[in-house]
């Protein structure tokens, strides 16, 4: 790992917490496969105490997740709707709840933002990165976030500046930093590289 990536979180992978009273599991797209992999390591009764929030993102994992017989399985169409549900669940969550998050980095970042807001230390959320390497990037100039960034430089969807993606990550924002790439010589833009497919 290079020095420039020190602010980026580490996603160590999901593993079952046998002492938790409730397992609050959030997964998006291929992140569902991480939950299924964890199921193989978990004791039989594990999912009877599990609440699963799932964003399919075009995948067909819903039947397999249902087959785990979780206490609840909520399937939600977008990250935004999943986070709305997460906030509701966290509002009434009790001691002994363990949060798990698996999927793309923007998805995990969204979950960590919500859990941070209710005072859950980020290191106590179990995380696993699966699927695309796409990034959420905050424009340092207009502060607007652009989701699903797969290339650098790219155009800020809010202010239209051409941004390069700096390897600097804010957990509070759940985003990398985007900085104007042609600030010194306007129009002098390096070739686009698909770095985060």
């Amino acid at each position: 790992m290079t020095a420039a990536m020190i602010s980026r979180p580490v996603y160590p992978g999901l593993s079952p917490d046998q002492y938790a009273k409730t397992h609050l599991i959030l997964c998006e797209g291929e992140g569902a496969a991480a939950v299924l992999d964890m199921a193989a390591k978990a004791p039989k009764e594990f999912f009877s105490r599990a609440l699963i929030l799932f964003c399919p993102a075009g995948t067909g994992y819903e039947p397999k997740l249902a087959a785990l017989s979780p206490k609840s399985l909520w399937v939600l169409p977008t990250i935004a709707t999943a986070m709305f549900r997460l906030r509701g669940v966290l509002a009434t969550a009790t001691m002994g709840t363990r949060v798990y998050a698996a999927g793309t980095e923007p998805f995990i970042g969204s979950v960590l933002q919500e859990t941070l807001a209710v005072g859950i230390d980020h290191k106590s959320v179990f995380t696993e990165h699966r699927g695309s390497a796409k990034r959420r990037v905050q424009c340092v100039h207009c502060k607007g976030c652009t989701d699903d960034v797969t290339a650098s430089p790219f155009t800020c969807t809010h202010c239209g500046l051409t941004l390069f993606v700096r390897d600097h990550y804010s957990r509070r924002l759940g985003a990398f930093q985007g900085v104007c790439v042609d600030a010194e010589v306007p129009g002098e833009v390096p070739p686009v590289e698909e770095l985060y497919r």
């Binding site: 020095a3 420039a4 020190i6 502060k143 390897d167 600097h168 930093q177």
Partner: peptide, 21 residues
């Protein structure tokens, strides 16, 4: 950027500095 770095740990906010780490 304070707005970007607020809430970060010591090494996190120094992440972009080359060589020193």
């Amino acid at each position: 950027s304070l707005d970007f770095d607020i809430g970060m740990s010591f090494k996190e906010w120094h992440a972009p500095v080359p060589l020193a780490h």
